[in-house]
């Protein structure tokens, strides 16, 4: 009878240790942590809208160009190779009253093309973009001749980070 009680106690204690994970646990363990990096292509215009006001000239010469290179920047991040940034306008070249050019200045993370006159067809604006973070100033120049009169053009300018 005494042996039976002792055995019963041992069984109960074993059950408690096992259920508490004390007996079977060792001093080390592991699990798998996976870092997955997917394609990232982000582009953003920092700053806001821009107005170029042409209202000066020298008598006998066409109106002075107006330049803005401080209002807006362009930032981008890509972890892919063979990328470029294109520019386009919502205004047909034939419909524009005046001349607008855009250029990437003070650039890092790519190579600026020559100043572009944005049209409804996307044109290369920055080339040589690959696995980088980059930035540039957006420099716009507005030009008008006396013969073109007065008025305004409102371009919605779109930049796109895309494959070469």
């Amino acid at each position: 009878m005494k042996v039976l009680k002792t055995s019963f106690c041992v069984i109960v204690l074993l059950f408690l240790f096992v259920s508490a994970g004390i007996i079977l646990a060792s001093n080390t363990d592991n699990h798998t942590v996976t870092v997955t990096v997917t394609a990232i292509n982000e582009l953003e215009i920092i700053g806001g809208n821009i107005t170029l006001t042409i209202n000066t000239a020298t008598a006998g010469s066409n109106p002075d160009d107006q330049t803005d290179s401080t209002t807006a920047d362009l930032n981008w991040t890509t972890n892919e190779a063979s990328k470029k940034i294109t520019i386009l306008s919502n205004i047909l070249a034939a419909s524009a009253n005046f001349t607008l050019t855009a250029e990437a200045t003070s650039i890092s993370g790519g190579t600026a093309t020559a100043p572009q006159t944005p049209t409804t067809t996307a044109a290369d604006f920055i080339t040589g973009v690959a696995t980088t973070i980059g930035t540039c100033d957006l420099t716009y120049v507005g030009s008008a001749t006396a013969a073109e009169g007065t008025g305004s053009d409102a371009h919605t300018i779109t930049y796109t980070l895309t494959a070469v």
Partner: peptide, 14 residues
């Protein structure tokens, strides 16, 4: 991968 803003040229009387 794309963004837009407005660029306006305003030519006043000279």
């Amino acid at each position: 991968n794309t963004d837009t803003h407005l660029v306006k040229i305003n030519v006043q009387p000279i």
